[in-house]
Simulated scan of single mutants.
Amino acid sequence: MTELRTVTIVGGIIAAASGVAAVAAVVMVFAGGFDGGANIGAGLVLMLSVPLAVASGATLTVAGLLRLAGRRQPRTTGA
């Protein structure tokens, strides 16, 4: 596996984990009922998902930049 593919896969995995955490937070809010109080557990899960989303965005941005850098380098032939 190349470095570019590895970075892209890691970014995708982090993005998926962030999405799962955000969906879990929404489910926790609606499953907890509306009694007028704050759902602390859902808030904590949502606070976990935001840094994961930022990290996945940064990782996928790096992967995109690596791909652009790879396209700009002239390919040398052995002939």
Rank of each mutant, 00 (worst) to 15 (best):
L48K: 02
R75L: 13
G70M: 13
D35Y: 03
V26P: 00
E3W: 07
A21I: 04
R5M: 13
P51K: 03
V20S: 05
R67A: 13
T61G: 02
L60H: 01
V27S: 01
F30S: 06
R72M: 15
A42S: 10
A15R: 10
A17P: 03
N39E: 05
A24K: 11
G36V: 09
G41Q: 11
L68E: 14
A79L: 07
I9L: 04
G78I: 14
T61Y: 15
D35C: 01
L48F: 14
A69I: 04
S49L: 08
Q73S: 12
R71S: 05
A79W: 13
L65P: 02
G11P: 03
D35S: 10
G64R: 07
P74S: 04
F34V: 12
L46H: 08
V54R: 01
A53S: 04
V54Y: 04
A38G: 08
V62N: 11
A22M: 11
G11I: 15
P74G: 11
L68Q: 10
S49F: 12
I14S: 02
I13M: 05
A24H: 10
V26C: 08
E3R: 00
A79R: 10
L65S: 12
R72S: 15
L4N: 03
V20P: 02
S49G: 13
G11C: 14
A31C: 07
E3G: 09
V29A: 02
T61F: 13
A38S: 03
A58K: 12
S18K: 02
G78P: 08
A38M: 10
A31T: 11
T76S: 15
A24N: 06
L60Q: 09
V50W: 04
G43N: 00
A15D: 14
L48S: 08
P51T: 13
T77R: 15
T76I: 05
V20C: 04
M47Y: 03
T8N: 10
G43Q: 09
G64P: 06
A21P: 07
T59H: 01
Q73V: 14
V26I: 14
G12Y: 05
A25P: 00
G78S: 15
